[in-house]
């Protein structure tokens, strides 16, 4: 237990002190006050380094977390249908989430190959031209993406999906983890609620909206927080997908990648510590905010 405190309390203090220093691991830390934080603020303003990494992470986190909540709930509802072979379908959806990230990344690099990748092939079935995926920095949900889509509708070319969308796609493949949690929660919903709703003449969609969703809301909330923390920490997949560079065009420079590179390739330990602290504060603020809003939409079952 002493070890546990040692492993967390000391780093906590040390990291805070170093965030006020210039420190390259070799020379002793030199106190420079708030200089590191000032630099972070200016990068935030100019959207370089830390600023860009934060924007990238925001894009990835917001889209991947909301998608994983939506598909997670829908998949779980689908997989809770009482059908023959239910266990098989569940296993097949869950299996990708146990695949080691490095193996999954190797696989997806190949699947997303612009020339011979399976994904582009499948997209061509629905008439979408070849996308560049990991080879370009653009992202689908952006003003540029909107322009592309409107061009395409008017008969032009379509160049929509880039590296972050590729990363999101790969993340979604591993959504099974969340599905399992939703499934467990679904099986806890008392059947009487659905029966009561049926008597009131509710159809499938109304039942989903008025029974399933409220009953799932505590778990959705939990997964939202876990998903947020996990997505902000995403590292191994971006590292493998971009071969440790965060390229193309710094588009895969998520915050964890930026932290790693500025610490272990630039050896700017003080600056990196400051960055980690700002990230921690942002994450804390986001979590608190979610907790605040949760009062309005999370229904905890009161035991009566």
């Amino acid at each position: 237990m002493v070890g546990f405190v040692f492993l967390f309390a000391w780093p906590f203090a040390a990291s805070f002190y170093w965030s006020l220093c210039r420190f390259d691991l070799i020379n002793p830390p030199e106190f420079i006050g708030l200089e590191n934080y000032r630099r972070l603020a200016s990068e935030l303003h100019s959207q370089q380094g830390f600023g860009l990494a934060l924007t990238n992470t925001l894009y990835y986190s917001v889209i991947s977390v909301s998608l994983s909540v939506i598909t997670g709930v829908l998949l779980a509802t689908l997989l809770s249908a009482k059908v023959k072979g239910q266990a098989i379908y569940r296993t097949l959806v869950f299996l990708p989430s146990v695949i080691p990230i490095v193996a999954a990344s190797v696989l997806w690099i190949w699947l997303l190959d612009p020339e011979s990748g399976m994904i582009n092939y499948l997209l061509s079935w629905v008439g979408i031209p070849n996308q560049n995926w990991l080879n370009q920095s653009r992202s689908a949900i952006s003003p540029a993406g909107l322009t592309e889509v409107s061009q395409w509708i008017h008969g032009g070319t379509l160049n929509l999906f880039g590296s972050k969308d590729a990363l999101i796609l790969m993340t979604m493949w591993g959504v099974g983890n969340f599905v399992v949690i939703y499934l467990a929660a679904l099986s806890d919903i008392p059947g009487q609620l659905y029966e009561a709703a049926e008597i009131d003449g509710a159809n499938l969609i109304r039942k989903f909206y008025h029974v399933t969703l409220p009953m799932l809301s505590p778990v959705i909330f939990f997964n939202l927080i876990m998903g947020l923390i996990r997505s902000v920490q995403t590292f191994a997949s971006v590292y493998v997908l971009s071969e440790g560079t965060g390229e193309p065009g710094s588009s895969l420079m998520l915050i964890s990648m930026q932290l790693f590179l500025s610490a272990f390739s630039d050896f700017e330990m003080g600056y990196t510590s400051a960055m980690a602290w700002i990230l921690f504060v942002i994450l804390l603020a986001a979590t608190t905010l979610l907790f605040r809003t949760s009062k309005h939409w999370v229904h905890y079952r009161t035991s009566s």
């Binding site: 780093p11 040390a14 990291s15 902000v232 920490q233 964890s256």
Partner: peptide, 20 residues
Amino acid sequence: LVVGSMLLPWHVTMIPRFVL
């Protein structure tokens, strides 16, 4: 404290751990 440390992203402790 133990539960709280779960919420701490590994980034914050990465450098001190490495130094240690």
